[in-house]
Design a protein around this nucleic acid. Sequence first.
RNA 1: GCGCCCGUAGCUCAGCUGGAUAGAGCAACGGACUUCUAAUCCGUAGGCCGUAGGUUCGAACCCUACCGGGCGCACCA
Length: 592
Amino acid sequence: MSSFRLHARPCHPIPINTMKTIPSQLEQAFRTAIRKAFDLDADPQIAVTLNENFGDYQSNCAMSLVRSVTEKSGQKSNPRAVAQAIVESLGESPMWSGVSIAGPGFINVRLSPAWLADNLNALRQDSRLGVEPAFSPQKVVIDYSGPNVAKQMHVGHLRSSIIGDALSRVIEFQGHEVVRQNHIGDWGTQFGMLIAHLRHLGQEQQSHIEDLEGFYREAKKHFDDDPAFQDEARATVVRLQAGEAAELALWERILEETRAHYQPIYINLSVKLTRDDERGESFYNPFLAPVVADLKAAGIAEESEGAIVVFVEGHENPIIIEKTGGGYLYATTDLAAIRYRTGTLKATRIIYTHDARQAQHFAMIFATARRAGWADDVQLDFAPFGTMLGEDNRPFKTRSGDTVKLKDLLEEAEDRALALVTAKNPQMPEATRRSVAHAVGIGGVKYSDLSKDRISDYVFSWDKMLAMDGNTAPYLQYVHARVMSIFRKADSSSHPEDAAIEELSTPQEQALAKHILRLGEIVDLVSRELKPHYLCIFLYDLATRFGAFYENCHVLTSPEPLRATRLALCSLTARTMALGLDLLGIESPEQM
RNA sequence: GCGCCCGUAGCUCAGCUGGAUAGAGCAACGGACUUCUAAUCCGUAGGCCGUAGGUUCGAACCCUACCGGGCGCACCA
């Protein structure tokens, strides 16, 4: 391996003062202390303390270390003695102002206010706000969204699109090279049907997507009712897949119409998918036959009941990769996609953000790809999410029982947000109200999804997601807007960015400071666990800590240098909030 | 039948690697606007962490069984 490359982008220059997360610094210090005390290499088990009265961080290793210490020394030890020895060899550091032992043997560390202030001042210069760039950047493929061609996007695509997009943003920000892949459903028997039907209608020339969807339904009915049409549809698919120009041209038109429908939705949602990220089912068409042939040659695939299948250990039924009589299935496509992503794209990690119902499918696909040697040294992650439910706890549908179209849902979100903004700020110019409503409405929809652990089903509620209280996008955005308002009111001569932090004298300032310094830790956690809700919890916590600060520490009326310190804290809070929200794909308006 | 996921306050949800007294918001009740945005804040009340065993110094978290709910299991994707 040659020297590692820093994937620095112009917008996020590598800071001079790269900061390690607090837990990793403490871990290093404690590990050294444990080695010094007992000549043992052990995990110090650093954690954030639950109760602030104990301290800020704690090491929980003393209890579990007793056994090894007793064994090594031959003398019976106890957790408090172990903790005592660790604390003694730990010594002093500018990082903490106190280390104490409590309960059975918890070692509590209280961070020093001066050290916190120094680190915050370093953060002021750091556009990454303490998020360390990845030391060895990976190439990470993220497979998400995946709408179907010739159909409108509906709520079924929402979770994949926004969770996948948030994960992409977070991992990209860490400095990994992210390759977004939109595996659209653009190939298959339904297109023969649709093309043949459009011909019947003489609709080769003009088709708007909303009509297309109607045509799709008609085509399906036609297909089911008319055996002659079935033959025609099948023949059309064969011609399409063989690359006949006329069929391809019409198929391309259908694709374009569909893009014209979903691209504005991505833009509206701030989902960073473009046409360049599109690698639909059709893309893998040329690779399907080799996938089957190679799996057969490797003795992994076999014939069963007329089809070509792969049996996977621990699963009763096989995956079918070639139908009886020929024809490939989505398992074949997914295998071809893995092969392309590892072989051609050189991914070292592939993340699939899809519905939890696909768990078994992906488990089998992953197992097969590994067996075939197509994913050696590649981390394959399935990041499943649950179903979106209505407030009646049943799958989210319109009143008449239809699937909710994404376009309608997002329009309603903006309408509702506009009503709220207008009620609160009727004097605000309409353009501003609309822009705020967009941020709040779309942000609300996204945040309410992202803020819950993705694995569970989640209940969609307009009132909850647009509420100003609690863990919602509007509340976080409001905190940001309040800070910006302080800056507007502040003297024009004082730029908050220039203000240095002198001393953190109040508990609220210190609590806020400690929290701001945790962003890097949280970003790592989100990337590792693929769970954006950790970032949401962090931001909500940031908001509540800012709330306490705002109530107790008046900024503008404070004397210098306190005023400057508080302005700097405000600035860091706003920047952390805006960056955090941006990593979730949510806007932070200046005012609301 | 086999397999996967979920079960925490009336409701919606957190609980990071197993760590100290299980936390928020809503709803209920009681307070705070001459104030940097009250779209806010403070307080009170609310728990058999589905049940029963087990592992551990320590379990909401790990293991086993059971109960309840959701989902998936051969040629759709």
